[in-house]
Each structure stands twice: as C-alpha cells, then as structure tokens.
Amino acid sequence: MSDSNTKAEKEPMFSAKVLKLLKNPLNLENPITVQVLGICSALAVTVQMKPAIVMALSVTIVTAFSNLIISSLRNTIPSRIRIIVQLVVVAALVIIVDQLLKAYVYDVSKKLSVFVGLIITNCILMGRLEAYAMGNKPWPSFVDGIGNGLGYGLILVLVAFFRELLGSGKIYGMKVIPQALYDSGYMDNGLMILPPMALITIGIIIWVQRSKTTELQED
C-alpha cells in the first residue's frame, strides 16, 4: 500500500508533460537541427568521440543547472538586469565546469581548449533561460535543460561518430576498421577530420531527419 502511495505522489515528477520536455529536444525540437542554437561550439570538437562526449556532458550540466538556478530565482530577478544575471550564472557554472575538467580530465580539457569557455555564448543556454526557465517552475526547467543538453549532445556525438570512423577508422579511440581492409587498399578519409566535413555531416543529418519528419520541412 505504502509503495503505491509514494508512487502516486511521485507521479507528477515524471508526468507525461515532463517526459515530453526530455524527449522533444531529441528530435522535434532539437536545439541544433531545428532551433538552430548552439552550433558555434558544437562542431569544432567533433573530430573524435571522446571530446564530443565530454563537451555534450558539460553543456548538459551547465544548461540544466543554469535553468534550475534561474528558474528558482525568477521571481526575484529585477527585469532590467535580467540578461546580466543570466550571463553571470552561466559564466560561473562554465568556470566551475572548466576547472573540474582541468583537474580531472586534463587531456580532454586540452583538446577542448577555448571551446569550454565558449559554452557561455552557446545560444542554447540563453535561449532556454529566456524561453523556458524565466516562466516555469524549477523542476520542469531542470528537465528542460537536461533534454536540450542531450538533444545537443546527440547531434554532437553523431557527427563525431561519423568523423572519427571515416576520418581515422576509430570509434572512441579504438580501431574498428580491420587491418585487412587497409591492406586491400582502403584509406582513411583525411577530409573527414578537417572542419568543412563537420558542416556537411550536419547538413546530411538534417536532410535525413527532415525526410523522416516531414512537418519540419521548410518551404
């Protein structure tokens, strides 16, 4: 009995509405391919999967917590300095993430270099803060942040997957293309590790996504 009671109480925490917040950004409202937010820092870290995953996690954490903080403070923030308060919260979180990366995953943090700092100007953050956190309760905002961070991460990891596989024959740093294939004349595509292919890969991902979800097509 008590079990079902607690379940009933917890129900609203993961209600259909909240779940939608988590699911929608993965496809229908994907921050990168649909909302066109946060591309800046997205692409430069997609040569290999490892930095891409770390970057995706960092962005998810920063988005979730800045949404949470701003949403909890939303009734106290003076509207005139709204943007500055948001920037300060975001910048503070990014600094913390950067410091943590430097302390615990030093080699990855070197690869990410300035792009961790650029999370601050990642439009996803300000976009979600303005559009969602300023007008909603902390918990849904937090979930919205996680959802958008993951939607962003999904594209990032997808792009990195193709670039690493085709560009250096590896997945997450491990060789997957057998040596026999190289011996018979296969070569890694050097173009894939250069910047332009990130753009084209994303273009193709958008193409595939919009062929499947026709309501996203533009005229």
Partner: peptide, 23 residues
Amino acid sequence: IPKPLRGLGISFIITGLMAIAFM
C-alpha cells in the same frame, strides 16, 4: 532543392563547400 534539404540543411552544406574552397 529536395524538400527536406531546403533552408537549414542546404545552408550547412553550402557553408561546408565554401569552407573546402577556403582551405
């Protein structure tokens, strides 16, 4: 342009091609 590629998709691909030219 193929419908699903219109707008954002083709912009990305054009930017990519321009980037190759710049390389």
